[in-house]
Write a protein that binds this DNA or RNA. Structure first.
Lengths: 191, 191, 191, 191
DNA sequence: GATGAATGAGCGTTCATTCAT
DNA sequence: CATGAATGAACGCTCATTCAT
């Protein structure tokens, strides 16, 4: 197994275990076992468990951001851009349910708080696209005149809630439902 | 200290510690100490830590349900009932931030999954009021023709997201913002 | 086993193992086993291994200081006081060889450096008696006019070296040899 | 890098690390890194860590012995020979503090005990010069009539103790102090 | 010969749970 | 009943040593 492969096996094992069992259910020894490496090997790739968890988070986030930007209709009206982002996010998570569950575990843990703070305060680069969209939406009187934080919440809140239900098997999100969910979110923020 | 008092102290200590520090930061010995009882005493009231955590969850949920029903405008239009529930929920969490944070910890843990499943499937009593409201809303063509699960998500998702931001200090929810947030949620579900 | 007993068993097991095998040869699990307690039990008495090691050091040192003061001929000439301290120290270590070997391990480790520094600089109380003796010896022209640090070294150096040889079985220190060793040390510092 | 060079780099790196940080602070990987070789390479020169440590000890000791013999006044009186050895030892350690600190680490560890035993029992060659000197001193009634072991201790004990204080910075050994320390040691052993 | 990635036994420490008092 | 000292399995992590390249 080549070096990048081994790293990937570790990251994948961690993603699976943490997504499925939470941080408690993912001791380093188990991650190592599932990755097919020795326990000490993980520490050649990651300084410690925290670093592994944070690096994994960054990787997942990066994949998502780059996915969201694929086909982003920069020149189209705000509504279409909004719908693109919303439905893309849903689609991404539907194809990568472990990523979704990992992010949920991450955000709801000591690790995640700092990141949430940074994101909201605009320190995270990837979020620019959202902030710009919302700022434009507000200033063009297309969206409700509410604090950005609230508009964020009105958009992500329902999307993520719907995703949770999909992941848990309470609904089956198909293209139709994805579109309708996106529209409903738009109704929540539009003026 | 009487028996119910002692139980209450334990439950309260657990609520505080878990809400503030997460499950990791709430070892039984610390809960016992903060409750002013011996470590072994907890096990006279709760079979084990899991039971304590689940019982605590049920208590918090019960308080919330009963609070939501106070002043519930049973006879008023769907919209008003919806807004009552949404803004009441926000108000409850604003005055009981520990309850909110505990629920978040709980839901995002192995404990929480089973409960979410039960609730959605209609096994939880308290949810009846929501289900009835949404079913009526859909059948009267006042709400979007979407699966109940989606309508739930469109309502709770943003509310809880907004609450998180309030708890984390990113916004300050006042009466005006509470009302506007409720309205925005309504826009999301209404036809 | 009563609480003080258990603490004593732990301290004793640590003393034995560290004295005989060094810090490497004294893992907490082994200390616990030899003490006849569970591994976690040690942590009820000592915050961590460092604290155990330092506390043990302080206990040993206290025993020694109090032993040295027994029968200290405060009013007798410097020479007699010096000989009292030297021979008492030898006698103490002969009856408590584990204490001697523990101190050796301790001083020759990261733990011990700080203590040595403090002692030399006169921050340790117990050393007062030595410093006073040497200062008086120098100012009365009974001892050589050398820095205190050197006089300390001229006294303790040979004593401890002789002790090491006794402990290792290279010589058998009897009363006669103890007396002669003390005298030889005195010759080293006296004018 | 030639074979002897590589070996020397390894030995040197081990000396530095162990002298400065103790055995705990000198993992094989770090020794290898500082030596500029691969971790596995060390094992081509030394069977294992113990062997490396023991070989290093022998090298240091050899350097010292050969240094002590430089200018040894074979024909001069016992006193002068004694002073030569004592002050040469001090001077050697002052110019080679790492050697001193390494020896201290070594002697105060499981490794060191065997060597001390050997030396004292006369199995080590280098010690001959000391033993001869002391035996002559005793038989000529120039030194005290004490066991050789004690005379050794009376000589080395204070010297090494003084060195420790110098290394730790408690005193600054200059030529004057070196001479006086040697004389004081002589007073300890002479009749 | 030289390498350094991989290994896994072993470390110090935590904490849910038990049980003698 | 209530206690809290005692427990030991399980954790995250280190490092001497091996071996495929």
């Amino acid at each position: 197994m080549s070096r990048p492969d081994k790293r990937h096996e570790i990251v994948n094992a961690a993603l699976e275990l943490i997504a499925e069992q939470g941080f408690h259910g993912a001791p380093m020894a188990l991650i190592a076992e599932r990755a097919g490496v020795g326990a000490g090997t993980i520490y050649r790739y990651f300084e410690n468990k925290d670093v592994l968890i944070n690096d994994l988070y960054l990787e997942v986030e990066k994949k998502i951001w780059s996915d969201l930007l694929v086909g982003y209709p920069m020149k189209k009206p705000i509504r279409e851009r909004f719908l693109h982002l919303g439905t893309s996010l849903l689609r991404y998570f539907i194809s990568h349910p472990l990523d979704f569950r990992y992010l949920e575990q991450f955000h709801n843990s000591p690790y995640g708080v700092a990141y949430r703070r940074d994101r909201i305060l605009g320190k995270k680069e990837g979020c620019d696209i959202f902030r710009e969209l919302f700022e434009e939406g507000v200033s063009c009187h297309v969206m409700k005149d509410l604090p950005l934080v609230i508009l964020f919440a009105m958009s992500f809140g329902p999307l993520l809630a719907v995703m949770r239900d999909h992941i848990l098997g309470f609904i089956r999100l198909d293209d139709d439902l994805i579109a309708k969910t996106g529209e409903a979110c738009w109704d929540g923020v539009r003026r």
